[in-house]
């Protein structure tokens, strides 16, 4: 069974958060809804997410800060901003901070799914590239090792995303 895409949704609009989470769950996302920025950063520290949908205007830590912290913790996470009122200034700011896309509420489901698909595509691409790099590095370093040893290392790499210790 294929692994579900892990999606973090951060929004202070409780009703919106709940329904959007339900709808994306129906569409086979592994959704974690979070009501504020601080909690979102905390959860993302404990578990890795593929994608995140983040609101901008929130009490406490605002959307820009959440975006910045998420990207800092995991450079491969792709973040989509979904805000009630977008401005060019905040869009530029978010793009600089590394957001994948910038959407305005209310947003068509198809459009949102399209953006999420593209975001995940980019994540896979960048992740694959990194994995390839790691693989060839592993192979280079293990030229004189036994085939069994190399196989064990490859399996570890596949599971954890990190090359095994020598």
């Amino acid at each position: 069974m294929t692994r579900k895409i892990k999606l973090l949704i951060v929004d202070d609009e409780e009703r919106f958060l709940r329904t959007l989470a339900q709808r994306l769950t129906l569409r086979d996302f592994d959704v974690t809804p979070v009501g504020n920025g601080a909690q979102a950063v905390e959860i993302a520290r404990e578990q890795a997410f593929d994608l995140a949908i983040v609101d901008l205007k929130m009490p406490g830590i605002g959307g820009e800060k959440v975006l910045e912290l998420l990207k800092k913790q995991d450079p491969h996470i792709e973040v989509v901003i979904l805000t009630g009122h977008g401005t060019i200034d905040s869009a530029v700011e978010c793009t600089k901070l590394g957001s994948y896309h910038y959407l305005q509420k209310p947003c068509e489901t198809e459009e949102l799914l399209d953006v999420l698909k593209n975001a995940y595509w980019r994540r896979v691409q960048s992740k694959l590239r990194v994995d390839e790099d790691k693989l060839s590095a592993l192979l280079d370093s293990a030229t004189h090792e036994s085939p069994l040893s190399i196989l064990r290392k490859l399996r570890t790499l596949e599971e954890s995303g990190k090359p095994p210790e020598k």
Binding site: E13, F16, T19, R23, K57, G84, K105, P106
Partner: peptide, 17 residues
């Protein structure tokens, strides 16, 4: 705009659900 778009987003999501 911000104040109105939020309820609109809720309506959209509920209806879509």
């Amino acid at each position: 705009a911000h104040e109105i778009n939020n309820p609109l987003a809720i309506i959209y999501e509920e209806a879509s659900m």
